[in-house]
Design a protein around this nucleic acid. Structure first.
Lengths: 350, 350
DNA sequence: ATGAAAGCGCTAACAC
DNA sequence: GTGTTAGCGCTTTCAT
C-alpha cells in the first residue's frame, strides 16, 4: 500500500538545474516535444514544422531559457573562446590590440579571455597551459620571451596561434606585425625631406626585436639619401621618458650634435623634448623629434609629437582574421606573415 | 574463424580525444589505475597512496595531459570564469579596472572574459545574455545605461553581480565606486587652503551621475569654508579637451572671472589649460586648474596636472573580492556598497 | 517531421 | 586506498 509518498525529486520529472536556470529538457516538456526538437528549432540543423517551432520559441520565452554554451562546447569540442595573452592590459598598446581582435571575433560569435603575464616567462607558460585547459579555439599572444618550446604544447594540441607584434616567426605560428623597418625608413625620409642631415636614433636596450628593425630602416633611408650614418648618433637607453631624456642629453653633448632625433617610442620622444628644453633648444627648430606609436599622450604634450602611428587595432583585426581562417580550416598551409604598414602622423615636433 | 581483424577504433581501448589531446582515461590506462584515481591524485579530494600518485603524475607528464576545464565546469556547475562588461577597453579607465579585477581573481583561479558594449544599451543586454549562456560565476560591469530590468535575468539566474563605478544601487547588485562627493570636496579644500576664493567647476552635460556628486562635494566644501557659491561659476560642457577649453573660455569672459577651476575629468582640465594660455594667463598663478582621474597624460602635459586620482585599480580589486565572497557564499545579505577614497595628486597646475 | 539514446570529459556517490 | 557507475546539459546518430 503506497500513501502520502511524494515523488522523490529528480525522478522522471524535469528538474530545474543549478541556480534555477532552466535547461533544454524543461523547454521540451513545456512545449510538448523532445529535447532534440528544441535543439533543432534553435540551431536549424534540420527542419522543424512551423507550429512546433512556435511552441518551442514560446516555451523558451516563458522560461527565459538560455542554452548552456559550456555544455554545447563540451559536446562540440569547441568553446567559441579565444585566449589573448599579453604582458599588461594597462600598457596602452594592448587594449587597442584587444579591441581590434574583438572587432572581428565578436561578430563571429567568439569571446576573448585575457591574461596578463607581466612579461614574465613563467607566467606566460602558465597562461598558455591555462588556455589549453580551457579549450580555447585559438590563441593570440603578444609577449616578450617567445621561445618556440613554450608554444610547443599549444601547437601540439592543435590550437591555432597567432603572434601579434614582434618579429621572429615561430614554427606553426602565424605572425602579424607592423613594418618596423619600413616605418622607420618612412620617418627618416620625412626628416631628410625637411632638410635635416644629422639625424640621431635613440633606441632601447637589447640589439634584437623591433628596435633592431627600426635601426635598420633608419640606416637604409640615410644610405639611400647619400647621408653617412654616424655610429655616435645611435644611442641606447631605457624605454621611458627618463631614458629618452638621458639618451638625447648625451647626444646633445657631442661636439657635432644632431639636428633631429628619432626615438623608439613616444615616451622616449617626450623625454627627448624635455632634454632639448632643458638646454634651451627649441623643438622642432633646433631639434626635430619623431616618436613611434602615437600613444594618446602624443597629441597632448607641447609641442605635439610627430610620430609613426602603431596600427595596433589593425594588427588585432588581422590577427583575428587569421585565427578564424585557421579555425575554420580554410587555411592550412605553413605560417602566414602579415605586415601592417603604419602612417606618419605629422604634428608639431618635426 | 577470425583473422586479420583489427579492433574497431573506440571499442574498449582509450582513444585520444579531438585535437589529439589526451584525456583522463588515457592517463588512467597508462598509470594502470582508474580515472577516478587520476582525478583525486590531481584534486586531492581523497587520499591516494604515494606510489599511485607518482605513477599518475608520471603518466600525466609523459602524455602532456591537461585537464579539460570545460568538462570539469559542466560537471561542477561552475566555470571559474567571470564576465567583465564595459563600454570600451580602449578608454584608459577600463584596462586599469580589468587589471584590478585580475589581481584578485587570477590567484583565485578565475579568468576574465571581457566584452565591449560601446555604451549601447542593446549591446549591454546582449553581453549579459551571453554571460549567462557562458555560465560565468560572476559578472562585473561598468556601463552607462543601467536599467534594473536589464540585470533581472542575471540576478534571477543566481549570478552574483557587482557594479563598478557609478552610483545608483540596483536590487541584488553590489556596488563599488569612488567617493565622488568626498573627492571633489577634498580638491576644493585644497584650493581654498591655497587662498583661491573664486573657484569654478566645469562639469559635463547631464545633471546626474558622478558629475552631480562632484558638484555637491564642491558646494559643500565652499559652504564649509564660508565661501558663497556663485552659480555663474558652474559651467556645463562636453567631456573632452575642446569641451573643457570652451567651458573655461566662457568663465574667463565673466566680469568677475574665477581664479581657480575644477574640471570633471583630466581631458577637460587639459582643455582648461589651453583656454588659459590662449588668453595669456599663467597656470597656476593666474588660474589654478585641478582635474579628475589622473590619466597617464596628466603627468605628461605642461604644466603637469594636479588631479584627483581615480582609484580604478582599487575599485577593480574591491569588486573582485565582493564577487568572490558572493560566489563562495560567505556573504549572502543585501547589496553591499564599497566606497573607495581617492587621493589628491599634487603637481604643477594648482 | 520527430524521438530515443549515446556520449563529449570530468567528478561525486556509492561500493568494496 | 581504489574502482564502478551515473550524470552535468547539450547535440547527434540512428531509428521511425
Amino acid at each position: 500500500m503506497r500513501h502520502l509518498v511524494d515523488d522523490p525529486p529528480g525522478e522522471g520529472a524535469q528538474v530545474a538545474s543549478r541556480g534555477g536556470r532552466p535547461r533544454i529538457g524543461q523547454v521540451a516538456a513545456l512545449a510538448g516535444v523532445s529535447a532534440t526538437t528544441v535543439s533543432h528549432a534553435l540551431n536549424g540543423r534540420r527542419p522543424v514544422s512551423e507550429a512546433t517551432r512556435r511552441r518551442v520559441l514560446d516555451a523558451i520565452e516563458e522560461l527565459g531559457y538560455r542554452p548552456n554554451v559550456v555544455a554545447r562546447g563540451l559536446r562540440a569540442g569547441r568553446s567559441l573562446t579565444i585566449g589573448l595573452v599579453i604582458p599588461d592590459i594597462t600598457n596602452p598598446f594592448y587594449p587597442v590590440l584587444a579591441r581590434g581582435l574583438q572587432d572581428v571575433l565578436g561578430p563571429a560569435g567568439y569571446d576573448e579571455i585575457v591574461t596578463n603575464t607581466n612579461g614574465e616567462r613563467d607566467l606566460e607558460r602558465l597562461a598558455l597551459d591555462k588556455m589549453i585547459s580551457r579549450q580555447v579555439d585559438g590563441i593570440a599572444f603578444a609577449v616578450f620571451h617567445t621561445h618556440a618550446d613554450d608554444l610547443r604544447p599549444v601547437v601540439d594540441a592543435g590550437i591555432p596561434v597567432v603572434r601579434l607584434g614582434g618579429r621572429q616567426a615561430l614554427p606553426g605560428v602565424d605572425l602579424v606585425h607592423s613594418d618596423d623597418e619600413g616605418n622607420a625608413a618612412k620617418a627618416a625620409r620625412y626628416l631628410l625631406r625637411g632638410g635635416y642631415r644629422r639625424i640621431a636614433f635613440v633606441c632601447g636596450p637589447g640589439a634584437d626585436g623591433p628596435a633592431a628593425e627600426r635601426v635598420a630602416g633608419y640606416r637604409a633611408a640615410l644610405a639611400e639619401a647619400g647621408v653617412a650614418v654616424d655610429p655616435a648618433l645611435i644611442s641606447q637607453t631605457e624605454f621611458s621618458r627618463a631614458g629618452g631624456a638621458a639618451g638625447v642629453g648625451r647626444l646633445l653633448e657631442l661636439p657635432d650634435p644632431p639636428d633631429a632625433v628619432m626615438c623608439a617610442n613616444d615616451m622616449m620622444a617626450i623625454g627627448a623634448v624635455d632634454a632639448a628644453r632643458e638646454r634651451g633648444l627649441r623643438v622642432p627648430d633646433d631639434l626635430a623629434v619623431v616618436g613611434f606609436d602615437d600613444i594618446e599622450a602624443a597629441s597632448l604634450v607641447t609641442p605635439q609629437l610627430t610620430t609613426m602611428a602603431n596600427p595596433a587595432r589593425e594588427i588585432g583585426r588581422a590577427g583575428a582574421r587569421l585565427l578564424l581562417e585557421r579555425i575554420a580550416g580554410t587555411v592550412t598551409g605553413p605560417p602566414t606573415e602579415v605586415i601592417i604598414p603604419a602612417r606618419l602622423v605629422r604634428r608639431q615636433s618635426a
